[in-house]
């Protein structure tokens, strides 16, 4: 049997635009609402969505950090403590909310995301940069690790003092191999994309279905509703 019949993961069933909208809702809530309850409820909703997509660990992690930040902030304001800075805590809890759906966005298969993004009014080139950045992000992190190891072997990172005495050298050692390596990979990837017709003028469809389905409608309606309610709270 073909894999088409195979049980699909839930994340494969959602449209990229839905997640974008979720992110947008999260942004609006985080910046408009002044009530902790409204903010908290919406965060909990996003937490549930992440869990439903099987990202239990990450969802729980985010939610715990969120709660800790809020509780701590309350304690600080009550007892007039300012270390760690209350600004930091409020930023954590404010920014964590939009970061959660953004994480979901990064989890969508890139081909599917491309298909969804194609239906949005973003210039192709700008969109391509975004997609390729998503593709490069894990690779670059890996390369960073390699360069750091090489610096360790060479003794460039022997001690904090050593780094602080030559900060510019250290920076140079980190940047130079990264740039060489990344440019090489960028070229190879470009070559590989070109020989597979990335520049062809055809109208492009996708392997993935990009259709707003019942599930999407449900998520959109509930999320928008929740966002409005939470803002009014």
């Amino acid at each position: 049997m073909m894999t088409g019949e195979k049980k699909q993961r839930r994340i494969d069933r959602i449209d990229g635009r839905t997640v974008l909208l979720l992110t947008l809702c999260a942004c609006i809530v985080t910046f408009i609402t002044t009530s902790f309850w409204g903010h908290g409820i919406f965060t909990f909703w996003i937490f549930l969505i992440l869990c439903w997509f099987g990202l239990y660990k990450q969802a729980l992690g985010c939610f715990v950090v969120y709660l800790v930040a809020i509780v701590w902030l309350m304690i600080e304001t009550k007892y007039q403590i300012s270390i760690p800075s209350p600004l930091l805590l409020s930023m954590i809890y404010k920014l964590l909310l939009p970061a959660m759906p953004a994480y979901l966005l990064a989890k969508i298969p890139s081909g599917k995301l491309t298909a969804s993004l194609r239906k949005m009014p973003i210039p192709t080139r700008i969109m391509l940069v975004l997609i390729v950045m998503l593709r490069f992000a894990p690779t670059v992190l890996h390369e960073f690790g390699e360069v750091r190891e090489a610096m360790k072997i060479r003794g460039f990172l022997k001690s904090v003092g050593n780094v602080l005495r030559h900060p510019m050298d250290t920076l140079e050692y980190a940047i130079v191999p990264m740039v060489f390596r990344s440019l090489k990979m960028a070229d190879e990837l470009a070559a590989s994309a070109i020989v597979r017709g990335i520049e062809s003028p055809y109208k492009k469809e996708s392997y993935y279905v990009s259709r707003i389905a019942a599930l999407d409608y449900f998520l959109i309606v509930v999320s928008v509703g929740a966002a409005v309610c939470c803002c009014l709270l």
Partner: peptide, 10 residues
Amino acid sequence: SQFFANEVAG
């Protein structure tokens, strides 16, 4: 460096 997508099917 020759892969454009993150997952096999794509």
